[in-house]
Amino acid sequence: MEMTFTVNGTQAKVEIDPAETLLGVLRERLRLTGTKEGCNEGECGACTVLVDGLPVDSCIYSAAATGGRRVETVEGLTLDELGRDLQAAFVAAGGVQCGFCTPGFIATLVSVLRENEAPSEDDLRTALAGNICRCTGYSQILDAVAATVSRRNGR
């Protein structure tokens, strides 16, 4: 079946299988490999993208359900001011080690910070429950968010 959606601001029309996931469309059909597959069961959050602004695990999100919707991946968030601020802060704060989880973290955090300009660390630890990082222990990721928040609120 055919499915049309907006990805990173551009209309895309793809042929999909009815049971296909959004992750499959992004990685295999559109070669947007910035979004990662870690578990394929909605446990790790490496595949997080924004659908109509909401963070979803694209590995368990129906491609068909994406029709007519607006998807933002890490590649697109690189062009978003908040996304770019977060990315820079991740690098500056040591929030990236292997980096495989990072695109998913960026996606979740863009959504969180769009909704709440200054979340507390506890809020963030809760909001990030669906994003697993095996390398950092999260502290420097939280530092990166704090730096982003203070930078954005300071200007």
């Binding site: 979004t35 991946t73 990236v96």
Partner: peptide, 22 residues
């Protein structure tokens, strides 16, 4: 000194090619 890791930007932007992406 605190320096940005050389592969940092490619990792945060999704450009880095991991084994599974190759």
């Amino acid at each position: 000194e605190r320096i940005p890791r050389s592969d940092g930007q490619s990792k945060v932007s999704g450009e880095a090619i991991y084994g599974v992406d190759y």
